[in-house]
Design a protein around this nucleic acid. Sequence first.
DNA 1: GCCAACGTTGGC
DNA 2: GCCAACGTTGGC
Length: 152
Amino acid sequence: MNYWLMKSEPDVFGIDHLASRSGQTEHWDGVRNYQARNMLRDQMRLGDQVFFYHSNCKVPGIVGIAEIVRAGYPDHTAWNPDSKYYDPKSTAEKPIWYMVDVRLVRKLKRTISLEELKQRPELAEMPLVRRGNRLSVMPVSPQEWEAILALE
DNA sequence: GCCAACGTTGGC
DNA sequence: GCCAACGTTGGC
């Protein structure tokens, strides 16, 4: 099993949106970065665990845990001209972009803030805390996963 | 709202 | 293939 961290803006799609979805499950669409795409498409497996991270908000940080319930498949929002994620270069025959389905496992008891994560020496290698990082999907090592959960 | 950092685009 | 211009991300 792998561990991941996925960023989302709470104003757009936050942990409470996921919680209110049918089956507390939703597709993770709109990833339009090749490095992140490769992870969605090639590496995420059923049952992988995900930290749900809120970005671009008052207190950025990890707010919950989700689980991959469907491995990578083509992101159909790329084919919809009305979608803000529309990409005419992607077709059903040759999809460029991929998504996964995630189900909420639980919300954390509290937000583990980015500020707090930055203070932990054992988390210093995470792309998340490194300057200028913009990856919206990133791997988390088992050690980092445990260290973060211990902060809760 | 600002702006640094980064990825992508496109002219050459 | 280089690289300047541009758009986006996301912390602050």
